[in-house]
Write a protein that binds this DNA or RNA. Structure first.
Lengths: 300, 300
DNA sequence: TTGCTGCATAGCCATTTCCTATACGCACAG
DNA sequence: CTGTGCGTATAGGAAATGGCTATGCAGCAA
């Protein structure tokens, strides 16, 4: 079945003559005539009654014309859908974020995106770095916010900001009154770290190599919030990213103290597939991050 | 836009790979690959994100696929409509009837058609012979029941039955007690006839040439029912077709008397365009007329 | 590295599609 | 009755299309 033949048929129904229909369709009369004959042959029915000196649609012809109109309408709507979708800032955008950043960045990021790209609807996928890498690769997410380094073939990144780490101790801990702490003071087996798989665990261990970190020990937490509660409960001290300690996450049960400069930190970046078709949406996210006011991290 | 490209796109959405989609569509991988590239170019958007080692639909791609499915569904339904319509006894049939036959034949004809072709839905168009001829010609009706002769180029006819005429007089009229009347007795200026345009008027004047028939006189009626009422009211006598005098149309205000044999009559026929595409429906009507029991006319 | 898989590209061929020219039938006018 | 105009069908040829095979190239697994 050819869409052109359907258009010819509808034109014939509207014009009531082969010649007029051909004119309307910008084809010659024989072209349209033959095309309709073929359509009838293909469907195995007679759509047009050809009489000496007069032609008209058959009863069935009218039914087919009606259905053909619907089909043509739906195909026209394909073009409309494509046209609407041409705006790269319109439609859904699937954004992955690592667990140790999501809760502390997203509320403000989403608010900023509403201003930068109000028609972009963010779907958030929170996970761990390794999984997000796969998601990115296979297109499950369009982009991801992760911590560098993030060197994956075919994936591009753009640094967003640096996030310093801070030491977290329970109220009344000997460190609690100090203004700054050197990283070498964070050591021993009472330092709580995240469980394996969270990239932040490795980043902390890199920053404070003297932490004792037997994997599977009771001094591991599933999430930053768990660790914070464990610190508050006196299980030990920890090192957490600044964003998880400021703003609405500040509380009275724990005390956070900056490291001595140069404070250990991680560089947070946006990552996306090289072939991603909406670079403008990537730009919008970068711009939205830059718009966040009073962030608990260091703008680049 | 090509329907094949839409099918390829949907197949790709289902299979997630060019090769598998090509296999499903029974075409080679390059064919499908190129077709989708062309579709993207035509729509001016990117539907598929091509990465090294991995391809996937874009957000917009999914939207277009959804719309493409609808369009393909509607085109498939065209074939279904055609398939259903292949039954020539299914669907609408527009039947024209002249005024002087319609009310007296249709009730029984419609009942008979319900048995012969229950899926044929009759649309009735009641009019005068000349108009029906045009309707037939231009396809406004599919067939017409008229009185012979009806010689029109491109129109075929099939005689259905002979309908004798009868003399109608008011109760108490001198003719009322006679068993038979010779046509020469029907004469003068108190014979009521139909107005010009009704073919039955000419048929009566042919049968009884001695009727005085100044056109536009007060002795003309618009319809058989009007004439019957005029006879009942004592305006004169008339000649009417037997079918309008029997059955439910028999009443006590007028008396109908047969003509002497050979009684004047008219031959009623079915007429249709030579090129009409559903001859089976024509056959069904002829058969339905033959099925009518106890008709007020003479089966051939 | 090597082979395998999967998509893109190139070149070729068959088919399709559209055109012009022409034939044919009908209607209308002279 | 005949010529002319209108409308559709048919025929033949040119151009465009759609399909194929062969091949290139990148990623991935062994």
């Amino acid at each position: 079945m050819k869409l052109s033949a359907l258009r010819y048929l509808v034109a014939f129904a509207d014009e009531g003559s082969f010649s007029k229909a051909a004119e309307r369709c910008h084809v010659s009369q024989p072209t349209l005539s033959v095309a309709l004959q073929n359509l009838e042959t293909e469907l195995g029915v007679s759509l047009i009654e050809r009489n000496k000196g007069h032609v008209a649609l058959t009863e069935l012809g009218w039914q087919v014309v009606g259905q053909a109109r619907k089909a043509l309408d739906e195909t026209r709507r394909i073009e409309q859908v494509a046209q609407l979708g041409k705006d790269p800032l319109h439609g859904n955008f699937r954004l992955g974020v690592i667990h140790t950043i999501g809760p502390y960045l997203l509320p403000e990021l989403i608010a900023a995106m509403k201003k930068v790209a109000p028609d972009t609807h963010l779907f958030i996928e929170e996970s761990m770095t390794a999984l997000l890498a796969d998601y990115l690769k296979y297109g499950t997410v369009d982009a991801a916010i992760i911590a560098l380094p993030f060197d994956i073939p075919g994936i591009k990144t753009h640094a967003l900001y640096d996030e310093p780490f801070e030491v977290v101790v329970p109220k009344g801990h000997p460190f609690a009154k100090r203004k700054q702490i050197p990283s070498c003071d964070v050591r021993g087996d009472d330092v709580l770290v995240l469980k394996a798989g969270n990239c932040f665990r490795e980043q902390v261990l890199d920053a404070c190599p003297e932490i004792s970190h037997a994997e599977g020990s009771t001094h591991e937490g599933h999430s930053i919030e768990t660790v914070r509660c464990m610190v508050a409960s006196g299980y030990g001290i920890s090192v957490l990213p600044a964003a998880s300690l400021g703003g609405i996450y500040r509380n009275d049960l724990v005390v956070s103290i900056p490291f001595e400069t140069p404070a250990p930190s991680r560089r947070v970046a946006l990552a996306w597939r090289q072939g991603f078709t909406r670079p403008q949406a990537i730009e919008a996210i970068i711009q939205a991050v830059g718009m966040i006011e009073n962030p608990s991290y260091l703008h680049l």
